[in-house]
Design a binder for these strands. Structure first.
Lengths: 182, 182
DNA sequence: GTCTATACACCGATAGAC
DNA sequence: GTCTATCGGTGTATAGAC
């Protein structure tokens, strides 16, 4: 099996159980590989698996979201594209937020820098788009941060309430929230 | 030592490490009690400790927030009081959100009902206040959910960015966000 | 590459002395 | 009430056959 496909199978385990709860047994079962085989692909063990997952997701965001945010489409189109990708990534709120899951406990110590960096890139890219749309820098940054907060918060609510509606509503309202009333 | 004081010392361990990461050793060290002594207070072990912590926090929210939301003050005053209490509880964003931490992995299986119930009470209480202020029911509920999403999201951002400013900004904007433009 | 078998540490939990 | 000592189980990780 390719390493990439293996990584894809690791993702839901970390997402659902968190870093500490993602045991080697569960990771082994989810991939269909024996424990020792996992160590063949990831010599650094569980930490290496989580690092690979983070890199995989970061690449996905880079290609699917950050890149198009920096493209030449008009701002409204970029926001719509981002909304669509987010809805896909989080399966309309059914899947937990990685940032939130991986910023707790041991994982937070291990990966804080990477996660912080990724979040900053996201905020910066979004801020840039809003400035292109004619919004003042400070206001643009504040709106971007607010939007990302809404998204993270919506994922928490969705998980706790077992209800994807708040997430879907937030996703739908992103264009207006970000570009409205300029 | 009183049981209540013991519970208070358990809280930061669960908050920082999550349920799986909050080991008996750490809980023992944080309380200053030996492992066996912890089991004297909490015969159900770690699950009992987490349950006690959840109950403690739920009581705090009930007395400090929900009750005043249902009081006789005017809505704006109630919102200000809630904002003040939230800022205190989360130490201006320095402390993680319990909902988010306890809705991952094994803890989610054990305590999902309690956590869902608490969140619903919060949303309902807030919705009620907004209706008192003359906001239509549907709109009131939506605003309440949005506000709580912002708060949860702000706590995620604060933790990842190591920066309390987004949280403080959200707290400050709560009155306008909830009661503005009616 | 993938497996079985296993090493060793730490987990949650308990027994029993004081 | 609090402790030390210890149990059985599971955690991460590795050795070595195939």
């Amino acid at each position: 099996m390719s390493k990439e496909k293996t990584i894809a199978k690791l993702i839901p385990v970390f997402r659902q159980h968190g870093y500490e709860g993602a045991t080697i047994s569960r990771l082994s079962q989810a991939t269909g590989l024996g424990k020792a085989s996992l160590y063949y692909y990831f010599p650094d063990g569980k930490e290496g698996m989580a690092a690979a997952v983070l890199e995989y997701i970061n690449n996905w965001f880079t290609n699917e979201i950050f890149q198009s945010l920096r493209g030449t489409n008009d701002p409204a189109e970029k926001i719509r594209k981002m909304s669509k990708s987010l809805d896909e990534f989080y399966r309309s709120g059914q899947d937990a937020c990685f940032l939130s899951v991986m910023s707790v406990g041991e994982a937070n110590n291990l990966f804080h820098n990477q996660i912080e960096q990724a979040l900053k890139v996201w905020i910066d890219s979004l801020t840039q788009v809003l400035q292109e749309a004619g919004i003042e820098p400070d206001r643009a940054r504040q709106r971007s941060e607010n939007a990302i907060m809404q998204i993270q918060g919506a994922l928490v609510l969705a998980r706790v309430l077992n209800d994807t509606k708040p997430f879907e509503r937030v996703i739908k309202s992103l264009p207006e929230m970000l570009l409205g009333g300029i």
